[in-house]
Design a protein around this nucleic acid. Structure first.
Lengths: 160, 160
DNA sequence: TAACAATAATTGTATTTGCAAATATCGGTC
DNA sequence: GACCGATATTTGCAAATACAATTATTGTTA
């Protein structure tokens, strides 16, 4: 018998939402939101990113990210500039202020992660991470059937 | 060296967002959103819920859920009625229409889950689910230190 | 039983989000 | 080198979301 509360997406989402919510509250005093932290941490790991790359790295929708980066620029946390050799794209980077801030926040993130997983052997956790990364990859195989199913449904509907 | 892209919350969130996005697209043709599906699946598993319980079961913020349930009632998917013996609380249930619909959607959800995890031995997956459930529990221990940290920060600030 | 605190849900309002359309630039081709 | 499709980002706009304040009911106690 199917139970939502034993399904993988449910268990996943619940932990994700809760961790996000707790971390948000923890860093609120620094004047940054969770999406801002994600952007800064992504840039700290791999700077000089284009908007699209940053979007796929953070799984933030691109128009949302465009506005978010605008706000972060306004606050002096990041820079954004059109490239000279390719005017379509922008280069996004941390400012010194942004770097200082994210380097304050990363230890907090590390602590959160440690607390969350401290009851499990580190082997299990690294396995878990591997599984999560591979599941993400295997989701790609669902894409084509989504379009097909929608097409089939549409056709059936117009037929009656 | 810390890397966002190897952190547990990142890997988790990325899979969660992506699964949600794909499933949303898959069920869009049925005229329901992902949050609506979650509510219906939760009610299918455990009907006759109060709003607050439904909120914690689905990890949807309560005011958001209040409006969502209103919309679902309007669409004839759920019922919502004040209790006779306790007028503060409401009882939320699936209508026959809602039940029929969610029973169409659940097989799709099951299929998605199967595809996502089919490269892994089922033992690993059930371990993974256990770990996710336990991590969720252990997050509770972070609550008190969040308040403390914020209080400490505030105090330090007002002092100079 | 009147007064007040606690609980449950809803609503006001401002912010965030995402789709679709618009804008800007590049790369190729005739 | 003008034109056209492809790529990258931004913006218009409507819907979704969350926090705070409000409403409604219940439980407690003096």
């Amino acid at each position: 018998m199917y139970r939502l509360t034993n399904s993988f997406p449910y268990l996943l989402n619940r932990v994700g939402v809760q961790m996000g919510e707790l971390f948000s509250r923890r860093i609120a005093g620094y004047g940054v939101t969770l999406p801002m932290y994600r952007v800064m941490a992504a840039l700290w790991e791999t700077g000089d990113q284009r908007l699209g790359d940053l979007a796929s790295m953070t799984t933030i929708e691109i128009s949302t990210l465009s506005r978010l980066v605008g706000e972060m620029k306004r606050r002096g946390l990041v820079t954004r500039a059109r490239l000279k050799d390719n005017g379509r794209t922008v280069a996004i980077n941390l400012t010194p202020k942004g770097r200082t801030l994210v380097e304050e926040l990363i230890p907090i993130a590390i602590h959160f992660e440690e607390v969350a997983v401290r009851d499990f052997p580190s082997k299990n956790i690294s396995d878990l991470k591997t599984v999560l990364a591979e599941i993400y990859e295997s989701l790609k195989s669902l894409e084509p059937e989504i379009e097909e199913a929608n097409k089939a449904r549409k056709a059936a509907k117009s037929k009656g």
